[in-house]
Design a protein around this nucleic acid. Structure first.
Length: 270
DNA sequence: ACTATTTCCTGGATGC
DNA sequence: TGCATCCAGGAAATAG
């Protein structure tokens, strides 16, 4: 499931392959769920535009679209991959995968294909796209600590709240809390300054390491080249229910918090 | 202004 | 083997 490190990896891969290319035409499938903007608006905004840049914002992929010969982007194509979404660069002769919801033909002859079996992903267009929340790799420690002050919700839920931090999902929330030694059910406001300091460092460390590893490949995540990441090999708690903690051998516990499976070591995390 | 719960989706795993 | 049921979860919608 693509979170910040996976989306960063994908956006970088896409930038290297389609930046500067021009969109010739757009095909959108029958299903309406994957579209957040009306289909004519998406097709109309994309067609004829040059892809000036591709970047990540939270868990979104942002394609900056410019009119030919104009340096400033006139619009953005926003892609959220949801859980099972993939954005692939394909040659036109490659067979169209099941659950392909959009095909964008490029002047270079290749195609951008959006494939998403579960249809939790979303496509939209925008002008001056913004999202709420802070980038976890850019926020200052002082502002990070302020985010959680006076919040009654479990720290795990607060980490997943995109209006606070954007880009942290279930895997990296669990991995960060383990490294910070904090139990996921703790009320956010109950964390001490020292625990918040450790959590700040842990979130940044985990995200940076995961980006360096090309993300975590669980379920069907692959990057723009169809390559898997390998950070899943370094997960210390996520997906390790019942297995021994790497530090103390205590079996890792799994509980459900706000409908999300949450993994932690009952001895190392307090 | 927050917080908690429900809903959307399909493929893979599980159970009988 | 076949069929039914459950589960994964990001974010929006709904309810409190």
């Amino acid at each position: 499931m693509p979170e910040l490190p996976e989306v960063e990896t994908i956006a970088r891969g896409l930038a290297g392959r389609v930046m500067g290319d021009v969109i010739e035409s757009v095909w959108l499938g029958e299903k309406r769920e994957p579209l957040k903007s009306p289909p004519q608006e998406i097709a109309g905004t994309l067609t004829g535009k040059r892809i000036a840049s591709v970047r990540r914002l939270g868990k979104h992929i942002v394609f900056d679209l410019a009119r030919d010969h104009e340096p400033r982007p006139a619009a953005q194509w926003i892609v959220h991959l949801g859980m099972t979404g993939q954005m692939l660069v394909s040659r036109p002769e490659v067979e169209i995968a099941k659950h392909t919801h959009a095909i964008v033909k490029l002047a270079s002859g290749r195609e951008l294909r959006f494939v998403d079996p579960r249809r939790f992903g979303r496509l939209s267009v925008a002008h001056g796209f913004e999202t709420s929340g802070s980038e976890p790799l850019e926020i200052s420690e002082e502002n990070f600590i302020k985010l959680f002050r006076a919040r009654k919700t479990p720290i795990k839920s607060a980490l997943l709240n995109q209006k606070l931090l954007r880009g942290v999902g279930n895997i990296y929330a669990d991995e960060s809390l383990y490294r910070a030694g904090v139990r996921p059910r703790r009320r956010a406001a109950s964390l001490t300054r020292d625990e918040l300091h450790k959590l700040y460092r842990a979130v940044q460390k985990v995200l940076k390491e995961a980006i360096a590893a090309g993300g975590s490949s669980v379920s069907d995540y692959v990057d723009a080249d169809g390559e898997e990441g390998f950070f899943q090999l370094r997960h210390r708690v996520y997906g390790r229910e019942g297995k021994p903690c790497y530090k103390c051998k205590t079996p890792i516990k799994r509980v459900v918090i706000a409908g999300r499976s949450s993994h932690y070591c009952p001895k190392c995390q307090r």
